[in-house]
Write a protein that binds this DNA or RNA. Structure first.
Lengths: 185, 185
DNA sequence: TTAGAAACTGACTAATCAGTCAAACAAAAA
DNA sequence: TTTTTGTTTGACTGATTAGTCAGTTTCTAA
């Protein structure tokens, strides 16, 4: 692993344990096994490090999700696939999950930032399709997207809090139906 | 307004603008119009100030909500009343809303803290009733509570982002139905 | 070989911050 | 009045931090 990646991974772990301000840049460098100076070589400021990490996570979530959505699938199947991929990704990448949670409630986060990302674009396309086809309630697409994201987060938090994994298919479906029913007509 | 209250109000505003770590205690005192020392007289540490603020908000949310739930109401009416009260409270108290959002994603927050509060108890009682009566899905009560809370937050964020208020009853109902449908059988 | 660029180091600094403390002040009790 | 108790002040401190920089090593390509 190159030093840039090593720094991002270490920062993600420390941030998710101690928060952005609770983690000194010097500590990130030390625990990543590199010099203090090299952190500022790759990321001129701490803020830029944090923003770079945000895009790193969103990119990986996109790569993880997009391959799983098949063209022939129904709308509900596609939404289920995206929902499940997001829940799995967040369960498997605990530090990413915590980092994003903190980022999106911090002053760093601006909606424009998120909007530009292709992951969000992918989701919004599906939602638009669902509204056109009359399968979704008459609600603004962005609200549907935000609601779905919140449901994913709630689900992941709940599973983690109870040390659960998605091994029970029947229960997994029941969790998804919660999210689906809030959007579907 | 006494100095203790003045400190809490000022801190809430500054925290919601700049975050916990982005706000120096000295600045809170200065903008509250009191000396630096008096802050530490009322709140021995910054952490204790933050925790005191959390309970202050939850207490006020409880007071705002509890008076509106009537004994004779149906379950759905009661849930609607609580949902609406929470949305209204968060819209009217923007700094409280931002503060709680930050607090609950920070290392300060532990679930035990929340569980002890009578506001949560009030909600869980209603949810238990809904499960007993078979009106809710077969889902753990705590997940229903968390899901409902997340829906409130999403709704408030959406309304604020679009500079909207709850003046359109029909639209308000549609927003509530989103939350309700995810829980109801 | 060599020149120049890029990666890398770690000691250093200027600024910031949470929390302290000795002293002043106010209010009420003795 | 005197004493006691609690409130308030703001200058101060020790610790911490983001970011710098002068210099070294490693890579690349001519």
């Amino acid at each position: 692993m190159d030093k840039r990646t090593k720094l991002i991974e270490t920062a993600k772990r420390l941030f998710s344990e101690n928060g952005f301000y609770g983690t000194a840049t010097a500590r990130i460098a030390r625990e990543a096994g590199v010099s203090n100076g090299i952190l500022f070589h790759y990321f001129p400021t701490k803020d830029l490090l944090i923003k770079a990490m945000y895009f790193d996570v969103k990119d990986r979530l996109f790569d993880y999700s997009v391959g799983q959505v098949y063209k022939g699938a129904t709308l509900k199947e596609s939404i289920y696939t995206l929902w499940l991929a997001a829940v799995e990704f967040n369960l498997e990448n605990a530090n990413d999950f915590e980092f994003i949670r903190q980022f999106e409630t911090s002053p760093y986060y601006r909606t424009e930032t998120e909007l530009e990302h292709r992951y969000v674009q992918l989701c919004l396309e599906l939602i638009d399709k669902g509204i056109e086809e009359g399968q979704f309630k008459q609600i603004p697409p962005m609200l549907i997207f935000k609601s779905m994201s919140a449901q994913v987060e709630t689900t992941v938090r709940f599973l983690k809090m109870n040390n659960m994994v998605l091994d029970n298919v029947e229960f997994t479906h029941r969790l998804f139906e919660m999210a689906w029913d809030s959007l579907a007509k």
